[in-house]
Design a protein around this nucleic acid. Structure first.
Lengths: 239, 239
DNA sequence: TTGCAAAACTTGTATATACAAATTATAATA
DNA sequence: TATTATAATTTGTATATACAAGTTTTGCAA
């Protein structure tokens, strides 16, 4: 994949940190040295380092340098915008996706309000369960605008919708707003998940946007509580 | 508070957006125009705009401009690093903080491992409940390194420890790693919270760092599930 | 040796320029 | 009028310079 200079330098530095070339507590080479190593300007290096800082790999300290953080402590990055398949691949777990429903329907009122679309707009409704080690753990209910994402098939839904959107349709998924709450189980949860007596599920509602700021997807992801984990890296923003 | 140019411009733009001067769907004035308005260079304006984008206020589109997003949709910003008091103030809710325990102890093994400190290090242990509308909703258990944060009092814990750390001690809280999971209630939960029959609590474990990358606090925040909500704004990072 | 001051180093901020890439507006043409 | 090509506008990337602010090292003096 073709990238610009500073993201490719970022990726190389991430690799070096994950390989252990730079260990937690170490300081990276100074910006000046990195300029020489990568044969580029200081501003470009600084953009790469800011990416590292944003994603929790380093902490920059004025006068000292860029201190490497213990990024591995949280090996389960559910934060950010990562598809289930990308996640499962990273973890190397035994998993399957079952597609229960894949239909086109007109937006009914509760979803229409969430997706901010017209009554006549056609929406994909996709219901899937994620099966890990033989147990139905996650129930995903997706609503996707068909005019933006046409041509969905069962096979695509079993693999990765994100992969299809980004690589086949060449659309750019950009950001999402997420909300995490706990709800009591519904009849659908009980039918499609192996709840093992749990009376509540953790629900993640996501509103997903393209890079031109159009909202195209609403997802409700319902997790069995004992298998749920969310990890976040947060920087303090002063008022 | 003295700030640098680009964060102060950022704050002004946030204000204009929250006031409704720029509405969702509008585009901000172009970078060039903003340069003229704020009498500064384009790079400085770009830093301000990048802050807006990171925090979910705008989406930048090449060739078009900076589109204002609907930031108000999530009026409950638990994401990021915000103290309970800051949050409660924003919401204007009726709340109280009860301090149940405020002691200094040597780090015992489970906490020592989390805080990555020596056996002989002294730690504050603070146990507090957050009471909203008369009900004990949140149980906070804090462990803070005494050598870094000395002089804690009950009064400080009833108000805001973060406020004391930042304004009295002049330390800079910088970032945190958080983990959210669901656990079954403990005896302590049942004693100190009004659980109303709930058998599980949502637990947020936070590791909080200063700007020089030293880990100084570990917090376990235990929430009654029906009152828990976590909101996140996430940008997709390409590999 | 110890303590202090100066220098060197490192990151932060602000400004300027040049060109690339995407979108939008304009003008010319059929 | 409708279409197409061109120009103007807007954001993205890369580079360069100058100085500020914090940390570490160096070296001098007591």
């Amino acid at each position: 994949m073709v990238k610009n200079k500073y993201t490719s330098i970022y990726s190389k530095l991430v690799l070096l940190i994950e390989e252990g070339k730079y260990e937690p507590g170490d300081t990276l080479p100074s910006e000046h040295e990195l300029c020489a190593q990568f044969d580029t300007s200081r501003e470009t290096i600084r953009k790469s380092l800011n990416l590292l800082a944003q994603n929790g790999y380093i902490q920059k300290v004025r006068g000292k340098g860029s201190v490497v953080l213990d990024h591995s402590k949280f090996e389960f990055p559910v934060s950010g915008l990562t598809s289930f398949k990308e996640l499962a691949n990273q973890l190397g777990k035994d998993f399957q996706t079952h597609v229960h429903e894949l239909v086109v329907q007109q937006a009914d009122s509760p979803v229409r309000e969430r997706l901010n679309c017209k009554k006549t707009d056609n929406l994909w409704k996709i219901t899937r369960t994620r099966v890990i080690a033989g147990e139905g753990i996650i129930l995903d209910k997706d609503y996707i605008r068909q005019d933006i994402v046409p041509g969905l098939t069962k096979s695509i839904c079993e693999n990765s919708i994100y992969d299809y959107i980004e690589n086949q349709l060449q659309l750019e998924i950009s950001f999402a707003k997420k909300e995490i709450i706990v709800e009591t189980v519904t009849e659908e949860d009980q039918q499609l998940l192996d709840l093992q007596g749990h009376q509540q599920v953790v629900v993640i509602r996501s509103y997903v946007y393209l890079s031109d700021a159009t909202l195209f997807q609403f997802t409700e992801s319902r997790h069995r509580p004992d298998k749920f984990q969310f990890v976040d890296f947060a920087r303090r923003t002063k008022v």
